[in-house]
Nucleic acid binder design. Structure first.
Lengths: 337, 337
DNA sequence: CGCTATTGCTGAACCGGATAAGTACCGAGA
DNA sequence: TCTCGGTACTTATCCGGTTCAGCAATAGCG
């Protein structure tokens, strides 16, 4: 049982292939009566356009690519990517665009995937995530000439269209809130130092702490895993100038940090306040529930997808500054004892 | 700057399109000298085969589809899908297959996506997940005639190729272990009752408990969220015949249950033992770390992808029983006080 | 009534590769 | 010397759509 083609429809309707094509695409050139007849036949025999044939005529591939450059074991750690993907998806599927996904080992492999996808006509564009400092991918995709939206700050996006959130503002809100509660020794357990958003948050953290005249505001870098989050927390809490509040760069490290504090017989929030970057169900089920920096991640993904589709349509896509993360206070923050 | 085609190569090499095609595909019909010259030119101008043109000649689409039918808010909850996808990916990318992903709202939409993908020649096959009892998708994809591998028990897979794990054995191992520790009142906080694997685990749980002559072994169904896990735990722990051990169907509910127990001033594991289905970093960062049923989820996905590729290649793909989940004991299980 | 527009359709070329069929050439064997 | 067989190509066709040029029939208009 071969797939029906427009030739089959043409034969049944007693018209030419051209007429069928016009009818199916809502183009002028056929009478309403003929159009209706053709549509009825197409529907009856279950015709679907063959995208390969369409793509051959220079039409779009109707797919966009996303290559994730993270080891498999880190991918499951944060809900971030699944939420991001579901947001991207929502926007794409509304326009019948598909999402091509590939998990790669390093940036070189990632560029190889983009080049292949683009060269083979598989995708119309791509979304770049996890921007690094001086990211080699930026000039490389610029050279490839593929429409690309970057999730990250404009300063690192080169000529590509950036979609970002004001992490500086979020850091400021958090630190000012903790200071208002009475904290003077605040620490930050950050993610990978080579990621551009880590650098931005680090810098903002230092600036805000200095601006408020705080004493020592240490930053410890990790790989986002619970183990490293726990180790960093243990180190901070063992130091002579023990911080009274710690801001973690993700949820899993915050939970790990919480466990470490409790192990060390420190009460959260009396002895230690804990803030996590990015809310997740996890933050709400632990005791005490965590004060978090909330972002609407699916919306973030949707905005990126929307910008990318505009770019593909040839519309001049403008950079988009998304909403800054908002501080949602729960039981893990309080004035220091 | 147009994408180079074989016509460009032919012109530069001074041969016909046909000769170029033979050379690039390793077919006989060109001299080694000419082949080398053609390959050099192709490489130099950065030629890539246009998949659309290839697909038009009846070749494969070199992509497989995965439609996830879960609300966006549940997708991020469990690391399961990201791990599964990375496993599928590993197998696919080794064969240069792409993964088409779409998040859908319900089974009807999911079938629509499969029909469209298949009808448009976008994919060569698909993987079906989250099998329901009497799943309507099974007969429907059978009718579509697309190669499909099902992640789930053969009893629910119809004529489709199943890849599954022996959940019954895992349930038995868990319950027998808890009984060996001295537990007599064991409860199960299960997931969605309409999922086929939930039914299988429920049944196994009931059978094993009955076989060991245990008293009351209640099962509470939830939607996998932390909130419902917490509520279920609260209900179980408030009952007169309070269980001394609870087996949760995922990690987030187990953590929520742990918090509830601690809120109710019950010591884990002295007053309550907790077991989670599926390990994740989360299970290791909470205090006490959770005893879990571990599966190699990436491997599970890889096996499914491998079976699907075989099916696409026209090889008779056989059902695959993957390794049963193994019990990994940590601090959350102990003899009842 | 004759002229031009418009409508509604046909036929053919085209996109970029794969491939079957055809051809020119060369060397070997009868 | 003629034929046979293989090599190394070329030419033409096909896949399933889109699109353009062309054409007949009809409508509009002075």
């Amino acid at each position: 049982m071969r797939r029906p083609t427009i030739a089959d429809i043409a034969r049944q309707a007693g018209v030419s292939k051209g007429a069928v094509s016009y009818a199916l695409n809502g183009q002028p050139g056929v009478s309403e009566a003929t159009r209706a007849r053709i549509l009825a036949i197409a529907d009856e025999i279950g015709w679907r356009p063959n995208i390969a044939a369409r793509a051959l005529n220079g039409a779009r591939a109707h797919a966009v690519g996303l290559a994730l450059c993270r080891p498999a074991r880190f991918l499951g750690v944060e809900p971030f990517f699944m939420e991001l993907i579901s947001g991207i998806e929502a926007e794409l599927s509304a326009r019948s665009y598909a999402l091509l996904l590939q998990v790669v080992g390093d940036h070189e492999a990632e560029m190889g995937v983009y080049r292949r996808w683009w060269g083979e006509g598989r995708v119309d564009g791509a979304i770049l995530v996890d921007l690094h400092l001086d990211d080699p991918r930026v000039p490389q995709v610029e050279e490839v000439g593929m429409p690309v939206v970057v999730l990250g700050h404009p300063s690192a996006a080169g000529s590509l269209v950036p979609v970002w959130a004001d992490d500086r503002a979020a850091v400021r809100e958090t630190v000012e809130y903790l200071v208002a509660l009475g904290h003077r020794r605040i620490a930050r357990v950050a993610g990978l130092p080579r990621l551009s958003h880590t650098a931005i948050r680090d810098r903002a953290f230092g600036d805000v702490c200095a601006g408020l005249g705080l004493d020592a505001c240490p930053i410890v870098h990790t790989d986002y895993t619970g183990e490293e989050g726990a180790r960093a927390t243990r180190r901070l809490l063992s130091s002579p100038e023990r911080p009274t509040a710690i801001v973690f760069d993700n949820d899993i490290m915050a939970v790990a940090g919480l466990s470490v504090a409790q192990e060390m017989r420190l009460d959260v929030p009396a002895d230690l306040s804990v803030v996590a970057w990015d809310d997740s169900p996890l933050c709400q089920v632990v005791r005490p529930p965590l004060t978090v920096l909330t972002r609407d991640i699916p919306a973030y993904g949707a905005h990126a997808a929307q910008r990318l589709l505009a770019l593909i349509d040839g519309v001049e896509a403008t950079p988009l500054e998304d909403e800054a993360p908002r501080l949602t206070t729960r039981g893990s923050t309080a004035p220091p004892a």
